[in-house]
C-alpha cells in the first residue's frame, strides 16, 4: 500500500462517516419532536454533507483517477464504503438518533482536533473547518443526551436502551489497521487507539450527568471502516441515496 493509497482510504473513512450520518440525520426532516430540533437536525445534516464534499473531494484528488466527490458518493457499492457501522444504524426514536449523534460527535471532535496538526496540510485545513461545526454538534447532542437521560422515567429508560443498543458499535472507532498505521507513521492522522482515554473521559462525564450507565462490555462489532462487512442497513440507504444517479447515469443535475 502506497502513502496515497492509504491516504485515499483514510479520506474515504472520514467522508463516508459524514455522508452516511448526514443522510441518516436528514431522514428526520419535517418529523422532529419540536420545531427547534427540526432546525437543528437539518443544520447538522447540512454541515455533515458539506464536510463530505471536502473529504471525498480530496479523496478523489488523491486517487487521481478522475472521480469527484459525487462519483464517490453515488457510484460505489456498499463494500467500497468505509464508514463506521455506528453511523449506518437506523435512526430509531429521537433518543437513539441523538445518542448516536453524541457517541459520534464526541469521537469526531477529538479526532478533528488532532487532525488540525496533520502533516498533510489539506487534511489539516478541512479538519480546522469541520472542527468548529463538530464542536457545536457535540455541545448540542451532549446537552440533549443529558436532558433526556435525566428527564422523565420514560425518557431515561429510552436513553438507556439507546445506549445499550449502540454501545457495541463504539469500539470500532478505536481499532487500528494497516491504513491507520501508515497514517500515523506519516504524521497524517493519529493512531485511533490514542483517542480512547479522552473519549472515555468525555463520555463518562456526560453520561454520568445524564444518569445513564455505560454497559460493562468491550465487545465491538467491526467491518464498517474497512468495508469487510457492513450491516444490512447500508444497502437500503444506498438504494435511496444513489437511485437517481444510477437510474439516469447520463444526466447532469
Amino acid at each position: 500500500m502506497t502513502r496515497d493509497q492509504a491516504l485515499f482510504e483514510f479520506l474515504c473513512r472520514m467522508g463516508d462517516n459524514t455522508l452516511i450520518l448526514g443522510h441518516r440525520v436528514s431522514e428526520w426532516c419535517g418529523h422532529a419532536p419540536v420545531l427547534e430540533e427540526d432546525i437543528a437536525l437539518a443544520n447538522t445534516a447540512l454541515d455533515l454533507i458539506g464536510q463530505t464534499q471536502l473529504w471525498l473531494g480530496l479523496a478523489g484528488e488523491v486517487e487521481g483517477e478522475g472521480r469527484d466527490a459525487d462519483k464517490l458518493a453515488f457510484h460505489r457499492d456498499a463494500w467500497d464504503f468505509r464508514n463506521l457501522l455506528l453511523v449506518e444504524m437506523p435512526n430509531g426514536d429521537f433518543g437513539r438518533t441523538l445518542m448516536r449523534q453524541f457517541l459520534f460527535d464526541a469521537w469526531h471532535t477529538i479526532l478533528l482536533g488532532r487532525l488540525m496538526t496533520s502533516s498533510e496540510p489539506r487534511v489539516a485545513e478541512i479538519a480546522e473547518k469541520a472542527s468548529k461545526e463538530a464542536a457545536y454538534h457535540l455541545e448540542r447532542s451532549a446537552d440533549t443526551v443529558v436532558s433526556l437521560g435525566d428527564g422523565t422515567e420514560e425518557s431515561h429508560a429510552r436513553m438507556q436502551a439507546a445506549l445499550d443498543y449502540l454501545w457495541p458499535y463504539v469500539g470500532e472507532m478505536f481499532v487500528a489497521d494497516a491504513v491507520d498505521q501508515a497514517m500515523a507513521e506519516e504524521g497524517i492522522a493519529p493512531d485511533p487507539a490514542s483517542l480512547r482515554p479522552e473519549y472515555d473521559a468525555l463520555l463518562g462525564r456526560v453520561l454520568k450527568e445524564a444518569t445513564l450507565i455505560i454497559p460493562d462490555s468491550h465487545f465491538a462489532h467491526k467491518g464498517g471502516r474497512d468495508g469487510r462487512m457492513h450491516s444490512e442497513h447500508l444497502g437500503h440507504l444506498l438504494t435511496q441515496m444513489q437511485w437517481l444517479q444510477r437510474a439516469y447515469p447520463d444526466a447532469r443535475w
Partner: peptide, 9 residues
C-alpha cells in the same frame, strides 16, 4: 411521538 421528548426536556 415527540411527546416524551418534550416532556423530558
Amino acid at each position: 411521538e415527540g411527546q416524551w421528548v418534550r416532556d423530558a426536556m
